[in-house]
């Protein structure tokens, strides 16, 4: 029998993988993929809690909004990443060092 704990374990794993990608990747697009994993982990939490703890569709409503926001954020982020690639020919956050104190 599958319980809430099972879903939380999967979402925790996805979240940690996402964090790991964000911390170790040296490529903005790969970091963005890590963020997508984090967002999905959160969404899975919302939907699972909605079924097992509350009943009803509250968590699913939130999940829907998060998917829409992820699309908007990805569009903006990729436009900005392309922009910086044209300017500096790199998308490694460690190599963009024009701004320094």
């Amino acid at each position: 029998m599958i319980t809430l704990t099972h879903y939380l374990a999967v979402s925790s794993l996805l979240f940690v993988f996402g964090m790991f990608a964000v911390l170790t990747r040296r490529n903005a697009i790969a970091m963005l993929m890590g963020v997508e994993l984090i967002l999905n982990a959160a969404n899975l939490n919302f939907v699972a809690f909605s079924k097992y703890v509350l009943g009803g569709v509250l968590g699913q409503v939130v999940g829907l909004f998060v998917i829409v926001l992820a699309a908007a954020e990805a569009a903006i982020a990729l436009a900005i990443i392309l922009d910086i690639y044209q300017e500096l020919a790199t998308i490694n956050p460690d190599e963009t060092t024009e701004l320094k104190g």
């Binding site: 963020v35 984090i38 959160a42 900005i80 922009d83 500096l88 024009e98």
Partner: peptide, 22 residues
């Protein structure tokens, strides 16, 4: 400079808002 500002802003921001959502 400006492109880099928005680049850092969006990368940090996307991560922070994702973690917050979790």
């Amino acid at each position: 400079r400006s492109a880099e500002a928005s680049f850092k802003y969006v990368i940090y921001g996307a991560v922070a808002s994702g973690v917050m959502l979790f």
